[in-house]
């Protein structure tokens, strides 16, 4: 199936020589929630801004639903909605007029019923006549989302959508994003909250220093790059790991009370049975055990460290 967003060999060098994007290639599938992760200055916002038309591309090509975002900007932009990172709002306008303005700007005829639906879905209906400057930060964020949804986009970019909003509002937004996805809208979000990506995304892309480090299904990414650990709480503390067991990836806690065995999730033979047998042979008994899995955050940190050339 044709990707809904196709980025090919996209590079961007800003005035002053800073290279924000380096030969980026990326496909976004229709109807998915795609999370773009990366540290500050990685190029997330530049990539989104180029796709949406806010920043001029350097070299390369971006297609939105088959339309070149530069040459066929009308067709491309009319199906895209953007919620920017900054809380940039028309402070003196009412919620209703600001959202209605956005719909007109995107070439759509007046449709009060749709605006009402969007405002109600975002719990903004009661505030429709309030000036935006009178709203809280979280409400302003909702207004930006309402503006982005006013023209019924098929692709929605959310640049740090839940930055600075409380937990309840964040949960509400996650529900709204899932609801949009169920209506067939493709969602691309950038976030600093790994929890957000872990909770919502179908696929994840990691960008660092302007380069795409990895793109994969969330589950697959966590399986491929994640690690599992088995911690054994010992009956008797050990002073050191016996020499015969040193070939296994075992680590002893400082107090000698726990042994941690790290193994590859993907590997068919994890080696757990062998380790347990050998421990038994050496008379090392345990009273309890606990297994844990890498979080997406750990995978992300490792990926970024790896891209920097640090030890993973």
């Amino acid at each position: 199936m044709q990707p809904v967003i196709s980025v090919r060999h996209l590079s961007k060098v800003y005035e002053g020589g800073f290279q924000a994007l380096k030969d980026v290639n990326l496909d976004i599938h229709r109807g998915e929630i795609f999370a773009l992760l990366g540290p500050n200055g990685a190029g997330k916002t530049t990539l989104i801004s180029i796709i949406c038309g806010i920043v001029n591309p350097g070299s390369g090509q971006v297609l939105a639903d088959g339309h070149d975002v530069v040459k066929e900007y009308r067709a491309a932009r009319s199906i895209i909605g953007l919620v920017p990172q900054e809380l940039s709002t028309d402070a003196f306008e009412s919620v209703w007029s600001a959202v209605s303005f956005s719909r007109g700007l995107y070439g759509k005829p007046r449709n009060d019923a749709h605006i009402e639906k969007v405002l109600k879905a975002l719990s903004l209906w009661d505030k429709r006549n309030n000036r935006i400057m009178e709203l809280s930060g979280g409400m302003k964020r909702r207004v930006l989302i309402a503006k982005a949804l006013s023209h019924e986009p098929r692709i929605l970019f959310l640049d740090e959508p839940t930055a600075g909003v409380d937990v309840e509002l964040r949960r509400d937004m996650w529900d709204m994003v899932r609801d949009l996805r169920s209506q067939g809208v493709t969602i691309i979000l950038t976030t600093h909250y790994i929890e957000e990506a872990e909770e919502m995304a179908d696929r994840i892309g990691v960008i660092n220093k302007g380069e795409i480090v990895v793109v994969d299904e969330k589950k697959s990414l966590m399986q491929k790059l994640g690690k599992k650990q088995l911690t054994l709480y010992l009956q008797q503390p050990l002073e050191a790991i016996p020499e015969a067991l040193s070939r296994h990836p075992l680590a002893l806690s400082d107090d000698g009370q726990a042994l941690t065995f790290t193994f590859d999730v993907q590997s068919e033979a994890t080696g757990i049975a062998q380790v347990l047998r050998e421990l038994n042979q050496h008379g090392i008994d345990f009273r309890d055990l606990h297994s844990s899995e890498s979080s997406l955050e750990e995978i992300f940190v490792n990926l970024v460290k790896g891209a920097r050339g640090d030890r993973v």
Partner: peptide, 14 residues
């Protein structure tokens, strides 16, 4: 000044 120019630049307008 307010940053809302993003909307104008990302809209399908000439």
């Amino acid at each position: 000044f307010s940053g809302t120019i993003y909307e104008l630049l990302s809209a399908p307008v000439s």
